[in-house]
């Protein structure tokens, strides 16, 4: 890691860009993957919530 630590360059725009990617050639499928993972997690948590909230059949707070 020779970049970063004490050098003046604090962000990646200073000489670390390999290829400029424009609007039309950019396809964010990595983003799709991450967001997909998030939705799967959320969906599973909602399923889990169903067990916690409704199948416990405990008394309601109200």
């Amino acid at each position: 890691m020779d970049s970063g630590t004490e050098s003046a360059s604090a962000d990646a725009w200073d000489g670390e860009i390999e290829t400029e990617i424009g609007h039309d050639e950019y396809d964010p499928y990595g983003t799709l993957t991450l967001i997909g993972i998030y939705f799967v997690i959320i969906a599973l948590l909602w399923v889990f919530m169903y067990f916690v909230e409704f199948l416990g059949e405990g008394p309601t707070v109200m």
Binding site: G4, A12, E16, T19, E20, I21, T31, T33
Partner: peptide, 27 residues
Amino acid sequence: VASMEHGARQRGGTGRLGWLRSLPWNK
């Protein structure tokens, strides 16, 4: 996330999740 991925790909990141390694985690 799409903007970050754009940065990672400009820095040479590839793959479905591999681009995450190309982000500037040292900053």
